[in-house]
């Protein structure tokens, strides 16, 4: 991660000061910020500070510690991501279960085709259409996601609804698809037939036997989808002009603020890894057949 952000730019001073800056000014700038040292030295130095919680100072907003910019952006992004998460997980599972229980029928086809088509449309496009319909034509919801300072939680939810729905639309299809596949497989399995033959009522079989087994693969997909959610935040935050970590990364890249950019990328990457780790642990807890360490 550091490599992509740090090794590629060539001359940081040149990038920051612009093409026309005199050579001496560039050299001076690089000396001041330590960006004239070999990349490996810079990396070790950065890593050393980063593990102690010091991400350095912003290059564009001189003297401002990176963390002071990152923290509010991170809080904002987490709010949006959490909102989208509580919407897309239940909706996706519900859609998948409905489709799976009615496999091959119109409900199934509608959910599958619409879900997957919506999943491949870029979130900027869905976001734009949502803004156009619900904010501009109908006037129900605000155009941007950025609320006035000091707004209450309900107002914040109102501002976050459109961006969250735009993210949900992109993520819904995959969750629904995997859940549907799981349900179809479970319905077909021997244990389901056994349960029916035992004389258990339909709803009990579905709840206790089919859904329990069907939702296994869904958990794994929710993890990867949450990763995509982080990526989708960039475009959505830009579209809705929402001061989150995605917009921050964009602005840092725009201003050649490499310390801020590196911090942003590292935080996003760490978040992604954390989500994957939590999903793996959850998976092992729920599924007794997987026990890490003892297998193989």
């Amino acid at each position: 991660m550091f490599a992509t952000a740090q090794l590629l730019p060539g001359n940081v001073g040149r990038s920051v000061l612009g093409r026309d800056a005199p050579e001496e000014a560039v050299a001076e700038y690089n000396r001041e910020h330590g960006t004239d040292r070999p990349a490996v030295v810079q990396y070790v130095d950065w890593l050393d500070s980063a593990v102690q919680g010091d991400l350095g100072e912003s290059l564009a907003q001189t003297g401002v510690p990176v963390w002071d910019i990152v923290e509010p952006a991170l809080v904002n992004s987490l709010k949006l991501a959490a909102f989208a998460f509580v919407l897309f997980v239940p909706l996706g599972i519900l859609g998948g279960v409905l489709a799976g229980l009615r496999v091959g029928r119109p409900t199934d086809r509608a959910i599958t085709v619409v879900g997957l088509s919506l999943a491949v449309i870029p979130e900027i496009v869905t976001g734009l259409v949502l803004i156009l319909v619900f904010a501009i034509w109908l006037g129900w919801l605000p155009v941007t996601a950025q609320w006035e300072p000091g707004a209450g939680p309900l107002t914040q939810v109102k501002y976050l609804t459109l961006p969250a729905v735009a993210l949900v639309i992109v993520l819904f299809g995959y969750i629904a698809r995997i859940t549907r596949a799981g349900v179809v497989e479970a319905l077909d399995a021997d244990y389901t037939r056994t349960a029916y033959l035992k004389g258990l009522p339909h709803s009990t079989v579905i709840r206790r036997h089919v859904l329990r087994n069907a939702l296994m693969p869904t958990i794994a997909v929710i993890a990867t989808q949450t990763g995509y959610l982080v990526g989708g935040l960039v475009a959505i935050e830009y579209l809705f002009n929402y001061q989150g970590i995605g917009l921050m990364v964009l602005q840092a890249a725009e201003q050649k603020d490499f310390t801020l950019l590196t911090a942003g990328v590292v935080i996003v990457g760490t978040g992604f890894l954390l989500v994957t780790l939590v999903a793996d642990i959850l998976f092992a807890l729920i599924n007794p057949r997987i026990r890490y360490g003892t297998a193989e």
């Binding site: 992509t4 990526g231 989708g232 995605g246 990364v249 950019l261 890894l273």
Partner: peptide, 17 residues
């Protein structure tokens, strides 16, 4: 793969200039 595509692409494009 740990870095979302868009974030990675933005980083590389910004670095390339």
């Amino acid at each position: 793969l740990a870095i979302p595509l868009i974030v990675l692409a933005v980083t590389v494009v910004a670095s390339l200039g």
